[in-house]
């Protein structure tokens, strides 16, 4: 069988517990992603979402298992994978242009200063910040800072974008605009995206697949929800689609109840669940199985 583009193979992450022994955040986690897919991970705090993202970024290492991207195991951070940080992670002593140029000159070390700047300006224009190049991050609003973070990630032309709750600190209006822009950019460039979010609507609007994680410690990938909404969905029409509410309810039910009681759910007779291939469900599709089932 051909391997997926990104293949998370049996990774575990354990931390030394305060009272001795080790706490397992998650173990034996399996998940695969294809090129050009937009995947959102949803789960409560402490389920290890950020740890998974950090492992994908190469900032953290799994205690067991491996992540294979395009046939190669991850060994440390790479310029092929850009991270958009929740707290934007801009260097406050550099201007907008300086921040983006820093990334560009890190990727293409032999480029001239002029070439680096030209490339950085292009990335800044993509996120609609032309005119703010010479501003320092402290002079920008939260939404603009996050835009610079996106521009910096885009500027190095990564194969994969990793986003850790990129919009969670923004007001609803700005968040909506940025979601539209990110969705547009990612669709146009065929970007592969792995994103963490707490926002159900954000996941529904952006993602092709939504990964539902149970509560930690010992968190698992309970299900993978394939988004039934059309790919060319628009923000204003999305809630009118017949599959929208079944999908939304399914995710909210999971977050409210099932994420906590998933272990009991597994113990029910007749329930089949495979760590290595978590079930792919499509709420709202005509042939949807009811949520609490069944032999695959």
């Amino acid at each position: 069988m051909a391997r997926s583009y990104i293949s998370i193979e049996g990774i575990a992450r354990r931390f030394p517990a305060p009272e001795g022994g080790r706490t397992t955040i998650f173990e034996d986690l399996w998940f695969a992603m294809e090129r050009g897919e937009f995947v959102c991970v949803i789960g409560h705090s402490g389920c290890g979402k950020t740890t998974v993202l950090n492992i994908l970024a190469g900032l953290d290492e799994p205690s067991e298992g491996a992540v294979i991207i395009d046939g190669k195991a991850i060994e440390g951070p790479s310029l092929d994978r850009a991270v958009i940080f929740q707290s934007h992670g801009l260097l406050p002593w550099r201007t907008v242009l300086g921040n983006v140029s820093y990334a560009v000159s890190s990727k293409w070390r032999d480029w001239s200063k002029a070439k680096v700047e030209e490339h950085a300006r292009k990335a800044i224009a993509t996120v609609g910040l032309t005119g703010a190049e010479m501003k320092k991050p402290a002079q920008l609003s939260g939404g603009m800072k996050q835009r610079v973070g996106i521009a910096r990630a885009l500027s190095i032309e990564p194969k994969i974008m990793l986003m850790d709750e990129p919009f969670s600190a923004l007001d609803a209006l700005t968040r909506g605009t940025l979601q539209d822009e990110v969705r547009g950019i990612c669709r146009n460039t065929g970007q592969t995206v792995f994103m963490i979010t707490h926002d159900v609507d954000e996941a529904i609007y952006l993602a092709d697949k939504i990964v539902l994680m149970t509560n930690g410690p010992d968190a698992r990938i309970a299900e993978i929800v394939a988004n039934p909404l059309p790919a060319d969905r628009s923000r204003n029409e999305v809630h009118k689609h017949p599959a929208y509410y079944p999908l939304r309810n399914h995710i909210i039910d999971f977050l409210v109840a099932r994420s906590r009681s998933f272990a009991e759910e597994l113990a029910q007779p007749g329930k089949v669940w495979n760590r290595r291939a978590p079930p792919i469900v499509t709420p709202g599709a005509p042939d949807t199985p009811p949520p609490l089932v069944r032999a695959v």
């Binding site: 970024a57 190469g58 900032l59 440390g76 951070p77 790479s78 310029l79 994978r81 850009a82 991270v83 940080f85 707290s87 992670g89 260097l91 820093y102 990334a103 890190s106 990727k107 190095i156």
Partner: peptide, 12 residues
Amino acid sequence: KDWLNVARTLEV
């Protein structure tokens, strides 16, 4: 830590 992580992801 964020700033150091930025440098790490950029392979500085």
